[in-house]
Amino acid sequence: MRHFGKTLSASLALVTMAGAALAQDDVLYVAGPGGSIEQALRDTVFPAFTEETGLRVEYVAGNSTDTLAKLQAQAGNQQIDVAMIDDGPMAQAVALGFCRDLDLGDIKDDIYDIALFPDGKSVAYGLLGSGIVYNEEYFADQGWDAPTSLEDLTDEKYAGKLVIPPLNNTYGVLTLVQVAKMRGGSETDIEPGFATFTDEIAPNVLAFEPSPGKMTELLQSGQAVVAIWGSSRAKALADTGFPAAFVYPKEGGAVIGTGICPVAGGAEKPEALTFIDRILEPEMQVAIAKTSGLAPVNRKAELAPEFQVGMPYGEEQINQLVTVDWPTINEKRAEWNARWTREVER
């Protein structure tokens, strides 16, 4: 009887494991951002994908840092099939071996070159640009011209009215790099960026603010009238009726590509590639753009004029965007963060 009991227990365990494995086979696990992007995916991409493949999508919402941390925690036994991460953390994910080769097939010809990440393992499914948002009404009342350059951030008239995200935020690090380039530096020569921030920009800064909610509050309350932010964030603020205007500086707006990759080291389901293909199709690109404010990466995605506002839409605006060397930035970022805290936000 004792032997029979052990055999029965072992059999039940095998059945349970087999059932769990079968359940996992019927699910595609996707980790990506919450909010408007998640809603767009649930409304458009998920139903079409499930109808085509028979797989249910299990979505794990979180910011890019959260998703990268999950990939690191699951290294060697990945539970996530598809990861959706901003381009900076995506470069880290690729470098750590968390993404596998991505063959886009014919649809690749329809994707803007700036969205095709050079690693060959990930691609941007949406674009936004980093630039300057300002209170158009306040500027008019003061008789100020609209800002046109990152050089304007050094203007003393902005003292106590300027907000910039800190260096541990994507917008913050992009601004440091772009300011360094403006003053003759680069990702490998960041000194001009630090010097300009420390001596000329930081004295004007009201707050180094990472939170979108707090940034919105500072602008809406009038405490801040100009800030560094993303095109989609500025559009969302303007959509509330606030007189927010957004410009790409003449140095070029640094592109932020919201990336996606098939995860390596797990089940490596072929349907992961199907999911990515569906997200890149024109119809899905339009739906995501309307809901989230992310600009389409597919040239064939056509948006009505009212949905184009506040995003880098079309060839002309896409060409205003510039890329940065994320692998170099990621290699130096911890060192830069420590220095930023010590020298700029002191």
Rank of each mutant, 00 (worst) to 15 (best):
L294N: 09
A91M: 07
T148G: 14
T7Q: 00
V263L: 01
N298R: 02
T44R: 04
G105I: 05
A207Y: 00
T188Y: 00
F117S: 09
I132P: 01
W326S: 00
G310T: 07
T198Y: 11
A254Q: 13
T196V: 02
E38V: 03
K121E: 15
W229Q: 04
M1Q: 11
G105K: 06
N319F: 05
A31M: 09
G76K: 07
Y59M: 12
D199Q: 09
L55C: 05
G160W: 10
V177Y: 10
A73H: 06
V133S: 15
G185H: 03
I107M: 02
F208C: 12
N63L: 12
Q317P: 03
E281Y: 02
V82S: 14
M215D: 00
T148S: 13
A20I: 08
V179T: 12
G160S: 06
L14H: 02
L96P: 02
G172I: 08
V15R: 10
D81W: 01
I190L: 02
V173I: 07
D81Y: 00
A301F: 10
K290M: 07
T170V: 13
E315I: 04
T170I: 13
I256F: 15
A31C: 09
E343Q: 09
E315P: 04
L218N: 10
A207E: 14
I260T: 14
E52W: 04
N330M: 12
Q317W: 10
P212S: 11
E137Y: 01
L28V: 06
Y313A: 06
W336N: 02
A234I: 07
Y134Q: 10
F275E: 15
L128E: 11
K300S: 15
A83G: 12
P327C: 02
I279C: 14
Q142A: 13
T44L: 10
L104A: 09
G88S: 11
F208W: 10
A75W: 02
E156R: 04
L206P: 02
F98L: 11
N330Y: 03
L153K: 05
D145M: 09
L68C: 11
P118E: 13
S130C: 00
G310D: 13
P203Q: 13
L55D: 01
I111D: 15
P203A: 14
Y171G: 13
G131H: 08
Y134G: 00
